[in-house]
């Protein structure tokens, strides 16, 4: 099935739950497993949290955009902010690295995204923002192809 949805919302932490539940609801037509649902919810939560904490430094008056596309049994999720951007993407992706240890960040966000999704791409421009594109293939299609 081909389908698409867009949502934009304010950069407040209460919207982290809204974002992950919305994306989970969008993929429900693929009849995902509980594990797949949990993976999707976790990676959306990670990327939206990054946008709030790092992109906007917790300024609640900014905007975060999510675009989800379903093409056959592949889901593409794009999570975008228009904030500070990431200076060094390779460093940011390192497990346990955090630029904000004082906020008790674990530094596991990108590691979790890369573990739970089939493809993760980060595009970031300082002072323009960060766009995280993630792709997941749902297991049903793999079974049918085999």
């Amino acid at each position: 099935m081909n389908n698409e949805m867009n949502i934009t919302f304010k950069s407040i932490s209460a919207n982290e739950a809204f974002a992950r539940i919305s994306v989970a609801a969008f993929v429900s037509s693929l009849d995902p497993t509980l594990e797949e649902i949990n993976e999707i919810k976790t990676v959306v939560s990670e990327a939206v949290t990054n946008a709030i904490i790092h992109g906007y430094e917790e300024n609640p008056h900014q905007t975060i955009a999510i675009t989800c596309t379903l093409s056959e049994d592949n889901l593409t999720v794009i999570i975008e902010d228009f904030g500070l951007g990431i200076n060094n993407i390779d460093l940011a992706k390192q497990p346990l690295y955090t630029s904000k240890p004082e906020l008790e960040r674990s530094g596991m966000g990108f590691t979790i995204m890369e573990n739970f999704m089939d493809k993760v791409e980060i595009h970031s421009v300082p002072d323009e923002g960060t766009k995280v594109t993630m792709v997941k293939e749902f297991k049903k299609s793999k079974t049918l192809c085999n």
Binding site: T42, S45, E46, T49, E104
Partner: peptide
């Protein structure tokens, strides 16, 4: 449900 923010607060 827990994400990496949970790991941070526990650590």
């Amino acid at each position: 449900f827990m994400d990496s923010s949970g790991l941070g607060v526990i650590l």
